[in-house]
Amino acid sequence: MFSRNARGLLDFLMAALCLWAAYHHTPAGALVRRASAWAFNSRSTARPLLAYYDGESSSGPTTSSLVPTVPVLRPISEAGALAYGTYLALKGLQPKAQTPTLALATELGLPSEALLDEAQGPVAARKLLEALEADFPNEDARLTAVFAGRIPARYALERVLAEGGSPTLERLAKQLPPGFEDAKVAANQALALTTVFGLGWPVPESTRIASPFGYRIHPTLGTRKLHTGVDLSVPQGTEVKGVEEGVVRRASEDAVNGKVLIIDHGRGVTTAYCHNSELLVKVGQRVERGELIAYSGNTGRSTGPHLHYQLALSSQPVDPLRFRAGPRTMASGARP
């Protein structure tokens, strides 16, 4: 059908198209672009690798928008946690994606402008959730109604129940009509935040913070790097406890993190515990809240005994102190 030269040109063009797609739309391509940017001292166009798989849409809430600007007062009830998570997820949406929620509040006779106000938002979100409870007693269905509207949520709920399934957020999302992608993401983020607000603390509450979350001059590398957790100043051998029930996803040792545990709490929430002297649980094991999981230590890249505690939402590290009560006392001396 094609001459040999034409076929050769077609094969070349197809190969070039495949290389272009791999360069711009795969994790491997992102690594190549970042390496090239570093080598030539230019700005990389690569998105974070996990952004390819974290479920965020162009107008959905970003992870940074889900972190409270001030620490949340505690103790916080489960209903309060859900309300605060709903407020933060809504605030992180683009204005167009906020429309169904604001329209729903107006429909129910609630002040829609209060939902986006930092002082009134969590309280307004709780009132909205309470107003929907009679029609949507299931928490997942209620959140679907908040972000997608009552009619789409009712339709999705009826479809799921007709099929004999439980109304989980995943099943409800599949029954929503096209165009509600942001609502699905926001509802998932609200549930994730409900989990985060309920987390405990891995060591005694009085433990001092040796190094907070954020950019710092790395104590051993001497370069400015993001510190993706908080360093808790505890003596070697201190009991480390799980902050919530979950499944152990990693229990290993490496040169940087030392003996490290990663626990998956569901809903896209994970916690990590690094530099331990001994690990007491194994991969795949289910642990309970408050269960002894390790003894702290000084393993890996560390300048002194401490526990590096890390919290992640959708695989992105966030400051765990933003979900705790009040400021904590900084430890004196060098940061571990």
Score class of each variant (00 low, 15 high):
residue 173 A to R: 11
residue 174 K to Q: 15
residue 174 K to W: 08
residue 176 L to F: 01
residue 176 L to H: 02
residue 177 P to L: 04
residue 177 P to S: 07
residue 178 P to H: 04
residue 179 G to D: 12
residue 181 E to H: 11
residue 181 E to N: 13
residue 184 K to P: 10
residue 185 V to I: 14
residue 186 A to V: 09
residue 187 A to G: 12
residue 188 N to I: 08
residue 189 Q to L: 13
residue 189 Q to E: 14
residue 190 A to L: 08
residue 190 A to S: 09
residue 191 L to G: 10
residue 191 L to P: 08
residue 194 T to P: 07
residue 195 T to E: 14
residue 195 T to L: 12
residue 197 F to Q: 06
residue 198 G to P: 08
residue 198 G to H: 05
residue 200 G to S: 09
residue 200 G to V: 00
residue 201 W to V: 00
residue 202 P to E: 05
residue 203 V to N: 02
residue 203 V to A: 04
residue 205 E to P: 07
residue 205 E to L: 15
residue 205 E to Q: 13
residue 207 T to P: 05
residue 208 R to F: 12
residue 208 R to I: 10
residue 210 A to K: 09
residue 210 A to W: 05
residue 210 A to C: 10
residue 212 P to S: 10
residue 215 Y to H: 09
residue 216 R to K: 04
residue 216 R to D: 08
residue 216 R to I: 08
residue 217 I to C: 10
residue 219 P to G: 03
residue 220 T to P: 08
residue 221 L to K: 09
residue 221 L to A: 10
residue 222 G to D: 09
residue 223 T to H: 12
residue 223 T to L: 14
residue 223 T to R: 15
residue 225 K to W: 10
residue 226 L to R: 03
residue 226 L to M: 06
residue 226 L to E: 01
residue 227 H to D: 05
residue 227 H to V: 06
residue 229 G to M: 01
residue 229 G to S: 01
residue 230 V to T: 06
residue 230 V to L: 03
residue 232 L to F: 02
residue 232 L to D: 02
residue 232 L to K: 04
residue 233 S to H: 10
residue 234 V to C: 01
residue 236 Q to M: 07
residue 236 Q to R: 06
residue 236 Q to H: 00
residue 237 G to R: 04
residue 237 G to P: 04
residue 238 T to G: 01
residue 239 E to N: 13
residue 240 V to E: 01
residue 241 K to L: 14
residue 241 K to D: 03
residue 242 G to D: 07
residue 242 G to N: 12
residue 243 V to D: 00
residue 245 E to F: 12
residue 246 G to Q: 03
residue 247 V to N: 07
residue 248 V to Y: 04
residue 249 R to H: 12
residue 249 R to A: 12
residue 250 R to V: 14
residue 250 R to Q: 14
residue 251 A to C: 08
residue 252 S to W: 14
residue 253 E to L: 12
